[in-house]
Structure formats: C-alpha cells, structure tokens
Amino acid sequence: MASVSSSEPAAARLAASAPWDAEADDALVCLAVRDETHDVKTFVLSPREPRLFAYAPGQFLTFSFEIGAETIHRCYTISSTPTRPHAVSFTVKRVPGGPVSNWLHDNLKPGDTVRALGPMGEFTCFQHPAQKYLLLSGGSGITPMMSMARTFHDLAEPRDVAFVHSARTPADIVFRSELETMARLDAGFRFHAVCEADALDETWAGPKGRLSLDILRDAVPDFMDREVFVCGPKPYMDAVKAMLQGAGFDMARHHQESFDFGELSEGEQAAAAEAEKDLNAAPAGGVRTFRVEFAKTRRVLECPENETVLDAARKAGIRLPSSCAKGLCGTCKSKLTKGTVAMTHAGGIRQREIDAGMALLCCSKPTSDLVVER
C-alpha cells in the first residue's frame, strides 16, 4: 500500500490517536459554518493539533465567547456523532435579541478560535440502553436527538428508533434532508415531523398543529413500549411530560434535558419564577450575612452564608447569566476580585480557573465579603 504524505492536513487529522483534553488545551478552531435553515447554523470545530473527541451522544460543551469586552459562557449540545471523532459540531438557532446566538451567526467563521470545556451531561441514550427508542424534540432541541440518531445510524445498530420533531413550518425543520435520508436507508429508523403552519414555498402535507396524543399514536403506535427522550423549549417539554403522564406512560422511562439551552432571557424567566417563591424568606437565626458587590454594574446586595450568590442576586433583581444552577454548565462563571466562597460544583469549572479566582455563582456561598467582576 502506498504511504500517505504526512503533509496532507486531512491525513494528519485522521492519524490522530490522542484524545482531546480540555484541561490541557481548551482552544477549538472553527473549521466550517453550515447553514441548516434560514436561521440555524452548525459550527464545526477541531483542536489546533489533531485530537480525537470522545463523548456520549446527547452531551454538551460549555463555551467561552469573547463578545465585545466581555467573556460570556454558554452551553450547547453537541449535534455531531462520536462515531466521527475527528471534529465536533454544535448547532445554534438565531434568537432575536440573543447576545450569543446573533454573535455566532454574524461573526464566528472558519479559522476563528473559541474555548470550550467538556463534554458534560447525563442526557444520553447510553445511560438508558433499550431496543426501542422514541426521540421527541421541539425547535433547537433537536440537537441531542440528532447526535443519538446519527450514532445508531453510523454503527448500523439493530435498534428501533422513532424520531418525532416539532417545528413551526417545513422550512424550520433542522436536518430535514439528512433525517429523511436516514429513514430511507435504515428500516429501523422512522422520522416524523409535525408543523404548526405551512412555509411560504411549501404546503405541509404531514401532521399539522402541535404534538398531541392522537398525532403521536398515529406516528408511533407502540410509543408506550419505548424509552423516551425529550428536548426542546420548556413549554414543549412540560406539555410532552403532561401528555405522557395522562396516557399512563411509565415515567421511569421518560428522560428530558435538565436545563434550558436557550438564550439567557428564557433561562432567567424560569429561574426567577423559582427564586420568587423564596423572595421574602428570612434566613435562619444566627446565619451570617456578607456584602456582595458587582464591580461593573456597581450593584450591592447582602447574601446569607447559607445561600448561593446567584440566588441572592435573583432575589435582589440583579440579572446574571445562568442555566443549569447545578455547577455543571459553567454559564455563571465569574471572577472574584475580593473574598472567598464555599463552592460545590459538578465539573463546570477547571482547577486552574479556581486558582485564578474564578467561581460558579450558582453553587458558591460566601464565606466573606465579596467583589465580583460583573
């Protein structure tokens, strides 16, 4: 067999044997930007040196984006498949007014570098092996399902996978052509789309409206026998959960993404509603309270030692970026220029960042007065 020139970049990437380690090098280079729909793009990334990505389909990466003079953290589900380990991709819908999605669509281009941490997350079919799956997604919630579907397809796994996606119009069905091709090639894979309305250039011939029990029964008659994964906007996931519960589905086999991958405003609304329940709750007697100052906005609040800085900020009406509230995604990562905290995180921050004074506000309780660089 003729040898392949090592000067060929593609050959060098395919020859990679070492895994990508975000702790050693968190920089990822944008290789390509692909238009999926009129307002959805996929960004394909690779390390600067050839490395292999290892992750479970459905997991996510937490990114650090330099936007203006600010570093903003966001978590995005991996839409690519671990069966193609030489690159990784994430898919983003442009959200009106969304600071990150609009920046990505307008600015991130091949050759640019972003920083990432991960992979992370437990929302994956690998955690719940089954012979029959039902993947339910709405809008941009299709990304973890696409990773799962691509994985089973590439491996030619003898699995029965039914994929039901809800979109506004036929023009908004992300990955439509690929999903239809997979369904044509694989007898064990079925794809169904549900659209709320027609597109300007296409009258929708399939199920119309929002996903209902009747539509689900028609598309997947044996849905009660399947392992179900759900991802999408919170109202969609809430509606699907209520629908399955009403049908008597065994909810031990129902799995949904545990936090909102949408833009800040959506995540904040849900979090603020939760925090509002405790708005007037007084801390237990004898609990110390510390002063927390946000240097850039010059806002100041009092935070009890048994409460996280993020919760105290929400009660004070201070908007801070957050998503998972579990110390997992890294969205609320902030620099402490003064003071100390007790932080119990779930992997959303590196030790070297902690050593440099960074903290996850969602899982950090003050042990002294604080100054936060926000």
Rank of each mutant, 00 (worst) to 15 (best):
Gly139Pro: 12
Ala295Lys: 15
Leu320Ser: 02
Ala10Arg: 09
Thr340Lys: 11
Gly248Cys: 01
Thr297Glu: 05
Gly188Cys: 06
Pro119Ile: 08
Phe43Glu: 06
Pro119Ala: 08
Arg74Asn: 01
Ser46Phe: 02
Val88Ser: 00
Val300Gln: 09
Thr77Lys: 02
Phe63Ser: 01
Ile349Trp: 01
Glu8Gln: 13
Arg159Glu: 06
Glu353Ser: 00
Leu301Gly: 10
Leu328Asp: 07
Gly317Glu: 10
Gly141Thr: 02
Ser7Leu: 15
Ala2Trp: 14
Val29Cys: 11
Asp21Leu: 11
Leu135Thr: 05
Leu155Ile: 06
Arg350Asn: 14
Arg210His: 11
Glu157His: 14
Ala130His: 04
Val4Ala: 13
Ala116Ser: 00
Pro82Cys: 02
Lys41Trp: 10
Arg84Glu: 12
Asp369Gln: 07
Ser368Thr: 04
Arg299Tyr: 06
Phe43Gly: 00
Cys324Met: 11
Leu328Gln: 10
Pro110Trp: 03
Arg168Thr: 05
Cys324Pro: 03
Gly285Gln: 12
Leu310Asn: 08
Leu108Arg: 01
Glu263Trp: 03
Ala15Trp: 10
His192Asp: 00
Tyr55Pro: 00
Leu108Tyr: 07
Val40Ser: 07
Arg94Leu: 11
Leu61Trp: 08
Phe229Cys: 05
Gly118Pro: 00
Leu361Met: 04
Leu211Gly: 02
Lys208Trp: 09
Lys338Phe: 15
Lys41Arg: 13
Met120Leu: 15
Ala282Gly: 01
Arg159Thr: 07
Ala199Gln: 07
Glu36Lys: 02
Pro158Tyr: 05
Arg34Glu: 15
Phe43Leu: 07
Ala282Ile: 13
Ala295Cys: 08
Leu244Lys: 02
Gly285Ser: 12
Phe294Trp: 04
Val164Arg: 05
Ala275Asp: 12
Thr124Val: 01
Ser364Met: 01
Lys335His: 08
Lys338Tyr: 15
Asp260Phe: 03
Leu155Ser: 09
Gly317Leu: 09
Ala252Leu: 14
Met182His: 07
Ala342Thr: 07
Ala156Gly: 11
Pro50Cys: 03
Leu117Glu: 09
Leu179Asn: 12
Arg352Lys: 14
